[in-house]
């Protein structure tokens, strides 16, 4: 397995908390690995499981979904629905043999630039030893 592989991560960030939190990381000039490409969505509740499956299918090595902390959702409770959906996906993927480390959910508030940075660092660190994700990746 290629241990030097640079994991490719897609991060679905809610606009109000987690994307703002990643902005905060930027404003604070906190450094983290460039392996993550963010997709800003309105709410973690808008992230369909099919997005995540599709990301793996298109070759993502890891997928992160990040929303507001419980009680902080800009849309009151979108993150609560996300939490349920993602809990099922988090159970299902390893059951099929995908490494559990490849899919992660987090709560990051607009103020938590440091937490966001740490999450990306940890996520990259736990993905690196796994090498490329080929299991669900489309190979034509």
């Amino acid at each position: 397995m290629n241990k030097d592989h640079e994991p490719r991560i897609v991060a679905f960030l809610c606009k109000w908390c987690s994307s703002a939190g990643s902005d905060m990381a930027g404003v604070s000039r906190l450094e983290y690995p460039p392996n993550v490409i963010p997709i800003t969505v309105m709410c973690s509740g808008s992230v369909s499981p099919i997005y995540i499956l599709s990301a793996f299918n298109l070759g993502a090595d890891g997928v992160l979904v990040s929303g507001c902390h419980p009680g902080d959702c800009h849309y009151i409770k979108g993150n609560m629905y996300a939490r349920r959906r993602m809990a099922l996906l988090k159970e299902l993927l390893p059951y099929l043999g995908l490494e559990p480390e490849r899919f992660q959910m987090s709560w990051v508030s607009a103020a938590e630039g440091v937490k966001f940075t740490q999450i990306i660092k940890d996520f990259v660190a736990q993905l690196k030893p796994l090498g490329p994700q080929t299991y669900l990746r489309r190979s034509l």
């Binding site: 490719r8 897609v10 490409i37 997709i39 969505v41 309105m42 709410c43 509740g45 808008s46 992230v47 369909s48 499981p49 099919i50 997005y51 599709s54 990301a55 298109l58 993502a60 800009h74 849309y75 979108g78 629905y81 996300a82 959906r85």
Partner: peptide
């Protein structure tokens, strides 16, 4: 907020200008 869009099993509801297709195409590029 799009919570409806992620809930719908049939992709019958989406938020304008942040549709499944747009997400899919972004994923494709990334």
């Amino acid at each position: 907020c799009g919570t409806c869009a992620a809930t719908c099993l049939r992709a019958a509801i989406e938020v304008k200008n942040l549709t499944h297709l747009q997400i899919y195409d972004m994923l494709g590029v990334y």
